[in-house]
Amino acid sequence: MAAISTAPPPSTPAPVRRRRSRSLSQAGWPTYVLAYLLVGVCIAPVLYIVLGGFRTNSQITADPSGLPSPWEIVNYLDVLSSSVFWRQAGNSAFVGILTTLGVVVLGVMAAYVIARYNFSGRAAMYSLFAAGLMFPMTVAITPLYIMIRGLGLMNTLWGIILPQIAFALPTTIIILTPFLRAIPKELEEAASIDGASRLGFFWRMVIPLSVPGVVTVGILAFIASWNSYMLPLFILNDEMQYTLPLGVQSFASQFSTDTARVLAFTSLSMIPALVFFSLFERRIVGGLTGAVKG
């Protein structure tokens, strides 16, 4: 390193120092200050919700932006011991898991076709799903509601799961297609010489190799489902079927004077999405990188 930095003419030591750093320079203290400031802004409202759950209503009224003193755990215990919370969490989990499974299975299969088969309708199929990005739930929600009602799926969790799978397919397929296309052709040829059919290749090679992409889209689908609000708002009127987002809202209006308990309920309901995300953060960022490159 030293040898290199002495080689160029005298005017260039500064660029050379940057060269070693390139885009990945060692951060100086201003970077840390700004980065922590950004983190603080992002986290403060979340902390407000979580810490607010540890306060009492009189603490919140007397000092809205203060810290808990003393810490009260009773709000959290109340929520955790209520059947309402667990029932809604169970509904959300059921919907989230089945949506994720459906999206991943159907998405991988369709993306495999688009990525690896040559046929005349391939471009049309890709365009169909790409156009789906422009069909957000908002536009379809009213007729979707009428259709779900016609199918007799009102107030059932399946009335949420099926549309959610359908609406998550475009993103899933568009993220997965470049992943599957990147699997080298030689691998497929080698497999076929060894006597594997294309479906056999799909099961034995494609599925294991596409795990990073699948985890990415799976987590995204689960989080989207866990947070989904508009569809349950239209489809679920029966409190027994409420998922957590509807539950949070109805809890917040029902106990609007009991702010501390609302905050406790709210912070408990965001835990699963946060846990899933932080466990797989690297994968999600990696998956987005693949999608951006593709």
């Binding site: 992002c42 947070n227 987002p245």
Partner: peptide, 12 residues
Amino acid sequence: LIFVPYVIAEVI
């Protein structure tokens, strides 16, 4: 941490 707000539900 900066991704946290994006992951949290709109309702929350």
